[in-house]
Design a protein around this nucleic acid. Structure first.
Lengths: 219, 219
DNA sequence: CAATAAATTTAGACAAATCTAAAAATGATT
DNA sequence: AATCATTTTTAGATTTGTCTAAATTTATTG
């Protein structure tokens, strides 16, 4: 199956909107994510249905079928491998790699994907801490523990970010926090949930909002 | 200037057809290279002229102008850098990288190109021995010496291939000849110009045709 | 140099991906 | 249940890159 760039992007959008349970997706939601008009989405849904990549009933909604889901996951796999390459090998910051990976993810060559993965040491998580599916489409499992769940006195390791918006990534980068860094949780403020911690010998306070968006593991 | 994939491929085609002297290019020649019809080419030439990337007079021919040439060279730079990456870092054979590089060359990110080049050690020549232009569009100079010009008893180093068709690359790969290998020229057959040489302690004969397509330098 | 051949362009059409505006279906509300 | 609001689809148009067939320009040649 050889899809156009646009078709691939619609599959990705459906994958992200419908979540892991594979819910039915609203046409409007797709339009919003794709930054296009609902009428355009309807056309594309009809097309993807004809190619047997999605289920779609007019007025009811759409969802990826098995083949479409696998296709979307392969794109996601490429995206996250390229992000890892950009950060680990080319020294990009994790906040600047998304747009480049959006381009690289569409390069078609199974052999390239396989070799890239092996060159990177078959990583299980990308620089944002997001899981990289394997060739068969299976995701590695991660403990979904966030910093706001930590207790006073604990030392934790940063494993990923829940929110990978440029705003949050930039904020985190500005603080100098990177994947794998260890944080010493000094105290949790009962009033607003903000957390006092030590990172690289430096003491500072992180808002509750920020802490809910940092995945950690106990050291 | 943000060009479509197709527009970029036309610029490349014009660059390759017109050669280093910047000759006027026939519409038919472009059509052949792009595997499309002359009428289609005419439309595109009009479009590229409007974007001020080429000179074009109906019925007379077309050629890249300064801006178009620079654009084409930047794509070529990316192509050859990616080929180098695929061979040097991912272990691809030099005969299998062209099609993948054709895709990667269109990825838009000056920072990526710059970092990739530096990651590769700012190479001057790609795995086929072809020159990689720098950011300003300047090409490194290479001695255009081919194996058929060598004399008996000489030891030479393989610097590149003149013909980079899959057929020739496969043939060369089958013989085990790689960039940087040294060849000991034992004798040149006066009858057909074929060359008897030693490579990795192994003696064999190479046709004149093959030898004219191997760039070398004297060891 | 006039006729013919070759190269090129013009004209008109089509598929893909998009849009706007209008129509239809669904759902929510009194 | 009838009406109104929302969501979604349909209809018709646009742009990009392509095509075929016909017309035009340039080149060749008897």
């Amino acid at each position: 199956m050889n899809l156009s760039l646009t078709e691939e992007n619609y599959l990705k959008a459906l994958f992200f909107i419908s979540g892991s349970e594979g819910n039915l997706v609203n046409t409007n939601a797709v339009a919003e994510r794709m930054e296009t008009k609902p009428a355009t989405v309807t056309d594309m849904l009809r097309k993807l249905k004809k190619k047997e990549l999605i289920e779609y009933q007019p007025y009811k909604g759409s969802r990826l079928n098995k083949e479409g889901r696998l296709y979307a996951i392969q794109i996601l796999r490429k995206h996250r491998l390229w992000e890892t390459f950009l950060v680990d090998k080319l020294g990009f910051g994790w906040e600047e790699v998304h747009d480049i990976a959006e381009q690289l993810e569409h390069v078609r060559s199974p052999k390239l994907t396989q070799r890239l993965a092996s060159f990177l040491g078959n990583p299980q998580f990308d620089p944002h801490g997001d899981p990289i599916p394997d060739e068969s489409g299976a995701f590695p499992i991660r403990e979904e523990l966030t910093l706001d769940r930590s207790v006073e006195g604990e030392v934790v390791i940063v494993k990923g970010v829940k929110d990978s918006s440029p705003e949050f990534l930039n904020y985190i980068a500005k603080l100098g926090i990177k994947l794998g860094d260890s944080l010493n949780v000094l105290s949790v403020e009962p009033f607003d949930g903000s957390i006092l911690l030590v990172h690289n010998r430096q003491e500072f306070r992180l808002s509750a909002q920020a802490s809910t968006n940092l995945y950690i593991s106990r050291a």
